Amino acid sequence: MNLAILYRGPLASCNYDCPYCPFAKRQDPPELLRADRAALARFTRWVAATTDVRLSVLFTPWGEGLTRSWYRNAMVSLSHLPHVERVVIQTNLAARVDWLADADPGAAALWTTYHPGQVTRQRFLARCARLSELGVRYSVGVVGLPEHLDEARALRAALPAQVYLWVNAAEGRRYDADEEATWTRLDPLFGWSVRPHLSLGQPCHAGETAISVLGDGTVRRCHFDPAPIGNLYDGSWRAALKPRRCGVAVCDCHIGYVHLKPLGLRDVFAGGVLERIPAVWPHPGGAASGTA
Rank of each mutant, 00 (worst) to 15 (best):
E64H: 03
L100Q: 02
A227D: 14
Y257K: 08
W281H: 14
M1W: 13
V88A: 01
L81F: 01
G272Q: 09
A126N: 09
T112L: 03
T112P: 06
K25H: 12
L93M: 10
E208C: 09
G144Q: 05
C18W: 04
G63R: 00
A129N: 13
A288K: 05
A170K: 01
R276P: 00
V258P: 07
V250F: 10
S69L: 09
D17L: 08
A158D: 12
L145F: 12
D252N: 15
I5S: 02
A41L: 01
D52A: 13
L33V: 14
W70S: 01
I211A: 05
T51D: 11
R45H: 10
T218F: 03
T209M: 08
G256N: 15
G65S: 10
A4Y: 11
T44D: 05
C251S: 15
L274I: 10
G256L: 11
N2E: 13
P160T: 00
G141K: 07
T112G: 04
A103H: 03
Y16D: 06
A292I: 07
M1L: 12
L149V: 02
S132L: 11
A129F: 06
G286C: 05
E133N: 06
Q202A: 14
D234E: 07
A41Q: 09
L149H: 13
L214T: 12
S79I: 07
T291M: 12
N73I: 00
L263G: 07
G247F: 03
G172W: 04
T44H: 00
L274K: 10
A170H: 06
T51C: 08
C128S: 11
Y114W: 08
T67N: 06
R137W: 04
V84D: 02
L58C: 13
P203K: 06
W70H: 15
V53L: 14
D216T: 04
V87Q: 00
